[in-house]
Design a protein around this nucleic acid. Structure first.
Lengths: 349, 349
DNA sequence: TGTTAGCACTCAGAGAGAACGAGTGCTAAC
DNA sequence: GTTAGCACTCGTTCTCTCTGAGTGCTAACA
């Protein structure tokens, strides 16, 4: 059966009312609420049809209707109107983002935090893999006679460091030698192409300093592996406590624990196609994870540079305000892409 | 009135039973539970006395007794027996801590996380002020013709960095000049003694490069201010959902929000005397914050080095297992002090 | 043919009251 | 000083009824 305009309108009204109030919607309410000028009885007929088609459900005989998962899907695909973020929220976002520039990952973590504050949802953010970036400089800074610090800087300004203690005393000269060696071999090639063999071969280059060098090489390997992987940030997991869906405390707590583990969410996000700035809406059980069957995800990719994309996400109950969520996340995604554009190709700071 | 041994024993039993079950404790239960071999009636007399003295309270006539704040205080000061952390928990802690060495703040954040997992409490950790540490090296790494990265390394291995973009092109020579200038003036003196004047005076040294240098100087100032301040980490705020005290969802949520703000907790921790490794127990309204009147804090200082102390904390309901909490936090404190001892004065890595 | 008024029916939720039982304080006897 | 006995309190739980929002169906209407 094809959905007539009137049915569409009714479905939309029901869904939007339910999103707002979390209460089953009755025919009377719809009849009064708007300009269709139809009697409750007529609305009831239409609602019965919509239920038959699978877009609505009835918690029990004497309750109103509630959107089904298919109902939300139809709404999101065909009925949902565009929403615009309020100026106040935009201002808030801009304020939060205009703080000092810092490490990429920290910027992303902060966006995640702000997004959770603004949207009242649990937010996640995946940092890009840095397998395409290159080590720009590998510095060994002497701290005292028994310790030095290794600092790795990449061409997209990621800095990793680690302190080392040595058994014997070390001197600047040995450190210079090491760092020369390391810089020679490992800089200016993409992280993804650095292999364990390459790193290991360096061990043989200075056998007399092997004791000191091996831990440094392990560190390099660790950093390379780390950068080759994307990272998941999650903020505001306890925002779910704001939704009546999670009024049951045990349910809420175990869901928060499940979320904070991060594994499952990562799994879902991985399936988002890479390489284009776009928004995905995953409703309820569409995510194929029984623990999250009652939740929806809105995902949005963002661009770091031509070789790296990351992903932002909102997690909320199925009955979430998709209009607002989509508009919000798109704003954040755009802002973030823009910010990186500025950082990497923009004017002066 | 002085507390006889029998009264003490009864008080202890009541408190420990209440800590375990969160249910008011009746006379029958105490009479049966243990070897006092007294009848419920006798226990009731004693309980009435203890209530009169202010150590116990009655939620209502027909309920059992519940410890008062004064009761917990007396328990903590005089009755509480030593408890030893289980080997399993210790093992868990050691596993979590033996991962790679990294930035001090990150180690502390991780300890905070592990502590929250092991204890089921909300945990906080204050990183030490680094006002006594010194800038060891200030490096400017050229990234491309229009950008460079400033990296600051302190003598206790803290690394801060920031990316800068320049309007004109820059060359290695100018960067060398800058970094020479900066290193000359700012290294090897304690962070606390670096003044804004000192930083500003550098602006005049190379007027021709002022445009490029000023942002860097601002960054230096920012880092110095940051290091001069202690940082608060908080983990497991939603652990409070595990306690029946927070069965009311709204209460729980607003308390979590209040906690995560961090301000109030910082305020309380500030009052802990610095400079010695010790445990403080702050019960209920003793913390002087109405929002936290229903919670207790266990605080433990730890030592980074002779000039810097930090603080770990557990936050839970007043009815918390003080025995276990104290033992746990002391173990973590000791482990952390030890870890830093190793990092800064220990053998090889 | 679509719309509507009318009506019987369903069922969750609120409220009232009764029964229960855990616990108390007091008294009197041991 | 201790304990058995007993009346009393009061939160909790259960049952029952009542209420009202909402439904589906039927028959009349435009």
């Amino acid at each position: 059966m094809e959905l007539g305009d009137r049915k569409k309108k009714i479905l939309q009204l029901i869904i939007e009312s339910y999103i707002e109030t979390a209460e089953p919607v009755g025919s009377r309410y719809i009849a009064k609420k708007n300009d269709l000028s139809l009697s409750p009885a007529t609305i009831r007929n239409e609602m019965a049809d919509l239920e038959e088609m699978g877009y609505l459900e009835q918690p029990h005989t004497s309750a109103g209707r509630v959107p089904s998962q298919a109902g939300y899907r139809f709404y999101v695909d065909q009925l949902m109107e565009r929403y615009f973020m309020t100026m106040a929220d935009m201002e808030r976002v801009n304020q939060a983002l205009k703080l000092q520039t810092e490490e990429i990952d920290k910027i992303i973590a902060r966006v995640c935090q702000v997004m959770s504050d603004v949207t009242d949802f649990t937010t996640v953010a995946v940092t890009p893999k840095h397998d395409k970036s290159r080590i720009k400089k590998l510095d060994l800074v002497m701290i005292d006679a028994h310790s030095f610090l290794a600092v790795i800087v990449t061409d997209n300004a990621i800095v990793k460091n680690k302190l080392f203690r040595t058994s014997g005393t070390i001197d600047e000269k040995a450190l210079k030698l090491f760092s020369g060696l390391l810089n020679q071999t490992l800089t200016n090639i993409s992280i993804g192409s650095i292999t364990l063999d390459m790193i290991n071969s360096l061990k043989k280059a200075v056998p007399e300093y092997a004791n000191e060098l091996i831990p440094v090489l392990n560190f390099v390997h660790e950093v390379v592996t780390q950068l080759d992987r994307s990272n998941l940030y999650m903020k505001g997991a306890n925002n779910i406590l704001k939704y009546p869906e999670f009024a049951d405390l045990d349910k809420a707590r175990s869901f928060i624990e499940f979320l904070e583990d991060g594994e499952a969410v990562s799994e879902i996000i991985k399936k988002v196609p890479d390489g284009a700035e776009q928004t995905s809406i995953i409703i309820g059980s569409e995510n194929n994870n029984p623990h999250m069957a009652g939740s929806s995800l809105i995902l949005r990719t963002y661009k770091i540079d031509d070789t790296a994309y990351g992903c932002l996400g909102l997690i909320g109950p199925i009955r979430m305000d998709y209009r607002k969520a989509v508009s919000d996340i798109e704003y954040f995604g755009r802002r973030l892409s823009l910010l990186f554009e500025e950082i990497f190709h923009g004017g002066e700071t």
